[in-house]
C-alpha cells in the first residue's frame, strides 16, 4: 500500500441516496446518508461496509446489498450507481469499483436492479433466481459418464473456441437486465446459448437449448430486445450483442427448419 490518502480528514465526504425497502411487499424509497472520511483506496462495497458499521453503531438497520467474492468473478454484486449498473467504469463490477472514481462532495444515488422478474428482497438485494430457472432449461450439455475422454480428441477451431469463451465470460449478474430499458435478459440468454453454439459438445442439444431457454426467458416476464445495445455498454464482462444475433438466428432456425418441430 502506498499509504496516501489515509490521514483523518483527507478522505472523501459523500452524500449517499440509498434505496431502502423492507421487502417486496412494502414500498421503498431513497434515504440520504452522509459518509465521512472515505478513503479513495476503498472499493465501493468497502465504503458501504463503513456506512453499515456506522448505522449499526447508531442502532439503525444496515443496508442490505449482495456481494460474495469481491474479485469481480462471482456475479453476486449489483447496484445501479447514479444510473449506471455496476457504476461508471466500463468492464468493471461494483466490487472492483474504487472510491477514487468519485470526488469529494459527490452525491451518489444507489438503487437495486429494477425488473419485474427481479423482485426486491430487501434494500438493494433482488431475487435473481429467474436466471437460474432459465439456465436450468438448457444452459448445460448432457455428457455420458464413462472413461475420461482424451483431452484433445475433439478438435475445435481456435476462433470458435474464442467466441465460445468470450460468451462464457458471462457471470450472470443481471446488469444487462438492469441497463435494458425493456428489462430484457437477451444478452444473458444469448451468452449462454452462444457459449455452447460454437462447441461440438453443444451441437446435439443446440436447437432444444435455444427454444427452451428463450421460452423460459419470456415466461419469467423479461422484456424483448429493441437493439438499444445498453446491455453491452453495461456488461462488466463486455459480452457483445453478437450473442443476441446468434441466439436469434438459432431460435428462428430451430423454429422454422429445426428437426424437432
Amino acid at each position: 500500500m502506498s499509504g496516501h490518502g489515509h490521514g483523518s480528514g483527507s478522505g472523501l465526504n459523500l452524500t449517499l441516496k440509498i434505496w431502502r425497502q423492507k421487502n417486496a411487499g412494502t414500498p421503498g424509497g431513497l434515504v440520504s446518508y452522509q459518509a465521512h472520511g472515505i478513503s479513495p483506496d476503498m472499493s465501493f462495497l468497502e465504503m458501504l461496509d463503513i456506512v453499515n458499521e456506522q448505522l449499526a453503531e447508531r442502532g439503525e438497520e444496515p443496508v442490505a446489498f449482495d456481494h460474495d467474492c469481491r474479485e469481480g468473478i462471482c456475479g453476486m454484486c449489483s447496484l445501479v450507481i447514479n444510473g449506471n449498473p455496476h457504476g461508471p467504469d466500463s468492464a468493471t463490477t461494483t466490487c472492483q469499483l474504487h472510491m477514487r472514481r468519485f470526488k469529494d462532495g459527490d452525491v451518489i444515488t444507489i438503487e437495486p436492479w429494477r425488473a419485474k422478474p427481479f423482485p426486491v428482497i430487501r434494500d438493494l438485494v433482488v431475487d435473481r433466481s429467474a436466471f437460474d430457472r432459465i439456465q436450468a432449461k438448457g444452459g448445460f450439455v448432457s455428457v455420458n459418464t464413462g472413461g475420461t475422454p482424451d483431452a484433445n480428441a475433439t478438435p475445435i477451431a481456435k476462433h470458435e473456441a474464442d467466441l465460445s469463451m468470450d460468451a462464457a465470460q458471462c457471470i450472470g449478474c443481471g446488469a444487462c437486465v438492469a441497463a435494458c430499458k425493456n428489462a430484457s435478459a437477451m444478452l444473458f440468454v444469448g451468452a449462454k446459448v452462444s457459449q455452447y453454439l460454437h462447441l461440438p459438445q453443444g451441437q446435439p442439444e443446440r436447437y432444444r437449448r435455444v427454444l427452451a431457454m428463450v421460452a423460459q426467458h419470456d415466461a419469467e416476464g423479461f422484456g424483448g430486445c429493441t437493439n438499444y445495445q445498453e446491455c453491452e455498454a453495461a456488461c462488466p464482462k463486455e459480452i457483445s450483442v453478437r450473442v443476441i444475433a446468434e441466439m436469434n438466428r438459432d431460435f428462428l432456425r430451430a423454429t422454422l427448419i429445426g428437426t424437432e418441430l
Partner: peptide, 12 residues
C-alpha cells in the same frame, strides 16, 4: 410487454 417488464423506474 417491455413496459410491464419494468414497473418501477430508476430515480436516476
Amino acid at each position: 410487454r417491455n413496459m410491464s417488464a419494468r414497473p418501477d423506474n430508476y430515480a436516476v
